[in-house]
Design a protein around this nucleic acid. Structure first.
Length: 488
RNA sequence: GGCGCGUUCGUCUAGGGGUCUAGGACGCUGGCCUCUCACGCCGGUAACACGGGUUCGAAUCCCGUACGCGCUACCA
């Protein structure tokens, strides 16, 4: 029987979810689901200096928003709880003891000052900065004595000499490392907390992780992990190192250029499904040329074999396009529900039917709920026509249109389609009476009604404003022009 | 500096020896539609890093070079 597929997303609680982390989490999720396995969330909080309050709760909340659910996590628990490393310290202590007994770990008393000095010397001589294994030759008696004396110390791994460590990577194939280039990595810090290297190996084994799918930045430290598995006598998991997510300048994606927090995209109005879809396509592609996928479809299509090796630039413009596409596929009800919370309270005094009509009329091309809300607000904004100058004909034409509209049966104003036709007819007949046609008609009306050269179709705006709003605008425009003539 | 990974249009990518005068998408751009803007529709632009091999034949295989990126912490 084959081993159960178990993957994990193991972030450190920095306070927000990085989109690169999201991509890793997503691929872990897709792979686990596809293979009928489990996905777990494990919090790697072994660096006490970087703890952020509420970070774990935030992760859970954001993943919930995204619709990615973990089979085992700090929130839902599971057979390998706890899923927070700071609550598993005894495991790491035990593991260290095991390594020490086998001679694979040793105590090091070197101060950070000395380490810095060593590094500086090596740099000066153009040598690779590595620990000089100074404490590896300390006698057991000396070690015991110094520990008893209360001297602070760490545990380091004893990397063997002159060996080649082979890392099997699903995405990159076999990658070899000379042990002479591998540092005697610290496993246990002086504060009693493990480093990432020790903790992730111990936990991945303990939690029976079958596939470690993580960012490429971990590839160089993987031989250390492989060595640890060997020291412990454990079978290592399969590794898959994902290509990095890049800034436009092709450096590793960072806060430097643009947003990296999933929360920032959520706040900007990016839909969770759009974000997931977009991120899934960064470094992976399906067999055909489709590019719109639900989470379920992604699960069906996903395969680690189709993950690319080269890093991918996170293209904000394409994300925006994808979000626009997702928005366009929403029903009117869904769109209304999304936009309504972003509308200012002033608009509540307007008829709900007309505000809703505004949302429906203005939605084509909207990039986000916020974007559409802004367009709605703009549509209701008062006109300022002081910069436009009219001749006599235009002035009477606008009056004529106002008269024509005021005689429309009340019911017409509630029938948006019919109103559009009536409005057009009124404008055309008034135009004919005053020698205006085509652009002369429409641009004059557009300026009178909105004060701007560009904007939504007037026939729709009239419906959005309603009888009173429309006539008010027309009368206000006429009044403004008349007073302008009197006081030049 | 050392180690490692990578390299197809500006960007995301298809391509796994002939079907590639290299396909799709975003972007940009021309036109159409039109009361304007946007939307929509139609079209265009643009790439196999370089040099050697292997082969009848290479974007596809091999080697080298260049360039880019990552790692090089008692951070993950």
């Amino acid at each position: 029987m084959t081993k159960e597929i178990r993957t994990r997303f193991a972030p450190s609680p920095t306070g927000y979810l990085h989109v690169g982390g999201l991509r890793s989490a997503l691929y872990n999720y897709l792979f686990a689901r596809k293979m009928g396995g489990k996905l777990l969330l494990r919090v790697e909080d072994t660096d006490r200096t970087r703890l952020v309050e509420g970070a774990v709760e935030n992760f859970i909340e954001v993943f919930d928003w995204l619709g990615i659910h973990f089979d085992e996590s700090p929130a839902v628990g599971g057979p390998h709880a706890p899923y927070v490393q700071s609550e598993r310290l005894n495991l790491y202590t035990e593991a260290t003891k095991t390594l020490a007994e086998k001679g694979h770990a040793y105590v090091c008393f070197c101060t950070s000052e000395r380490l810095e000095q060593v590094r500086a010397d090596q740099q000066a001589r153009s040598l690779p900065p590595m620990y000089d294994k100074h404490c590896r030759k300390l006698s057991k008696d000396e070690v015991d004595a110094r520990i008893t004396a209360g001297e602070p110390y760490v545990w380091r791994m004893a990397v063997p000499d002159n060996e080649v460590v082979e890392v099997h990577d699903i995405i990159r194939g076999d990658v070899n490392f000379e042990t002479s280039t591998i540092d005697d990595q610290v496993l246990m810090k002086s504060d009693g907390y493990p480093t990432y290297h020790l903790a992730n190996v111990v936990d991945d084994y303990d939690m029976r992780i079958s596939h470690v799918i993580r960012g490429e930045e971990w590839l160089p430290s993987t031989p250390k992990h492989v060595l640890l598995y060997r020291f412990f006598g454990w079978e290592p998991p399969q590794f898959a190192h994902l290509p990095l997510l890049l800034n436009p300048d092709r450096s590793k994606m960072s806060k430097r250029s643009g947003d990296v927090a999933v929360e920032a995209y959520r706040d900007k109005g990016i839909l969770p499904d759009a974000l997931l879809n977009f991120v899934a396509l960064l470094g992976w592609h399906p067999q055909d040329e489709r590019e719109f996928f639900t989470l379920e479809e992604l699960v069906n299509e996903f395969s680690l074999q189709r993950v690319n090796k080269a890093g991918a630039v996170f293209d904000q413009a394409k994300l925006r396009w994808m979000n626009t596409e997702y928005l366009a596929r929403l029903t009117h009800d869904e769109m209304w529900d999304g936009v309504a919370p972003h509308l200012p309270s002033e608009l509540l005094t307007e008829s709900a039917v007309r505000v809703r009509y505004a949302v429906i009329s203005l939605r084509p091309g909207a990039e986000s709920f916020q974007d559409l809300a802004a367009k709605v607000v703009e549509a209701f904004a008062p006109a300022d026509i002081s910069n436009d100058s009219w001749d006599e004909a235009q002035l009477s034409f606008v009056g004529e249109v106002a008269d024509g509209l005021s005689t429309l049966p009340a019911g017409t104003w509630n029938d948006f389609e019919g109103l559009m036709a009536e409005f057009k007819a009124a404008a055309n007949s008034a135009g004919a009476k005053h020698g205006l046609k085509g652009k002369g008609i429409w641009m004059t009306l557009r300026m009178a009604l909105t004060g701007r050269e560009h904007g939504p179709e007037l026939g729709r705006l009239v419906g959005i404003w309603g009888r009173e709003g429309t006539l008010n605008r027309l009368h206000a425009a006429i009044a403004a022009k008349l007073s302008q003539e009197q006081s030049p």
